[in-house]
Design a protein around this nucleic acid. Structure first.
Lengths: 239, 239
DNA sequence: AATATGCTGTGGTCAGACCACAGGAGGACG
DNA sequence: CGTCCTCCTGTGGTCTGACCACAGCATATT
């Protein structure tokens, strides 16, 4: 008798209800969801089923939960796509649903589009990019720190392109292969030389973007990524 | 007491455990997870916490659960990225985390890459694409059916490109805006004319791919998508 | 007026209890 | 001996009730 139609899954009922509330505008970003207990009684399901649905929404980056009282407590709608995308891609890579090569290739596709768009857009704002370029110029930077800044740089480029979806996907793809990238850095014999080369390539890419040279920017970013992953032994050899 | 380090989240413990099992190869696709009760006792958490973690994995498309007994029962690792990506993108769009325009633009970027790759690849296999093209040639096809076949066609192209990540993302992007696309179809005055035009564009794209004309294929797919979304009133007007 | 106190409601977690289901083990029967 | 049937077991799915820690608010106290 709990089944409304043909779905014996109580938690799915909750998920669909919240999704429809979101879709119809009854629930907007920043607003609070009803308490778990209220949702349970209102939907005629147990509190545990409500919690399972909320957990999914939390991991997907749709809500933020906090205990206690007051306006900041409870489940609040916050659309933060990055976290959810990162978790999904990371897990899929771990479960071998996504081959590493496909992830790298997709990253190239997206970053290619990012630099193409940026180089064609006169109103671009690359302040964050330049700041990261400067930070990466520091000497004696440990590989881990360099890689973190590198991730930030590529993310900043995506952010500058203004497309939130591409931005989230880039962040997710990066996170998904983060552990492999770190391991790959250890395989590189002369890290200082690699760092110097990466710095130069970064500058060349940004220069090409600011010069409006789309073709050059695309080609540079392509080899930049491909060469590094090949050197790190993450991808056998491009077709 | 239950906190091992500094994490008061029991369900996250479960999630991390399974992810590490996946990463270390202790858990491979097709294999079964321990039963919920076993996992609970083994990790020292309650069964409900285990269930919350499993629910997340299920929605993300990592596991498939089935009650009963035998080798097919329980939670089995199945890396099916499409479902998880679709759910994530759909929810993010619903929660206004992803503007519709960004979704459409990202779809163009990915599909652009797909046709570019296909047109450059001599070993492409477009049998599924041709089958869908033929199916879409039927007369008096309702708009809903036509759109379903259209989705299948674009997905088949992505599939032919061989990149599972792009494939999953394409499917997810499509699902995310599916309801809007359906609503947009109603806004088109002369649907038959639109269908005829879409059919012609599809054939032109496939022809360009098979002719190895990358530039033409890219341009065609770009206008194909842009024009339709503009006609359906989903995107105001490309920059 | 400023501070201290307890109350209330929140999410977080656990334990236990059912249910429906699918498969296997064993016996009953031909 | 082979076939069928029944019961038993273990699974996920769900609900209920019970605690806990926490944050804010109202109240009492100073």
């Amino acid at each position: 008798m709990p089944a409304t139609t043909a779905s014996p899954r109580a938690w799915r009922t909750v998920l669909e209800r919240i999704e429809s509330d979101l879709l119809e505008g009854r629930l907007r970003p920043g607003e609070r969801l009803p308490s778990e207990r209220d949702l349970a009684t209102e939907l005629g399901v147990g509190r545990s089923s409500v919690r399972e649905a909320l957990r999914v929404l939390e991991v997907m980056g749709l809500i933020r939960t906090a205990a206690g009282s007051g306006p900041q407590a409870g489940a609040i709608v916050v659309a933060t796509p990055d976290g959810g995308m990162s978790t999904l891609l990371r897990l899929q890579v771990a479960a071998q649903g996504f081959p590493l090569a496909d992830v790298v290739q997709t990253r190239i596709v997206l970053e290619d589009a990012v630099v193409a768009r940026l180089s064609a857009d006169a109103d671009r704002d690359l302040d964050a990019v330049h700041a990261l370029l400067a930070a990466m110029g520091a000497d004696q930077l440990p590989a881990a720190d360099f890689l973190a800044l590198d991730a930030g740089l590529h993310y900043a480029l995506a952010e500058a392109s203004g497309n939130t979806v591409i931005c989230a996907m880039m962040a997710g793809l990066r996170t998904a292969i983060e552990s492999y990238v770190r391991a790959g850095a250890d395989r590189i014999e002369d890290w200082d030389a690699m760092a110097t080369r990466l710095r130069a390539e970064h500058h060349a890419i940004v220069d090409a973007i600011e010069a409006g040279d789309t073709a050059a920017a695309r080609a540079l970013v392509r080899t930049h990524i491909t060469d590094y992953y090949t050197a790190a032994g993450l991808v056998p050899a491009e077709h």
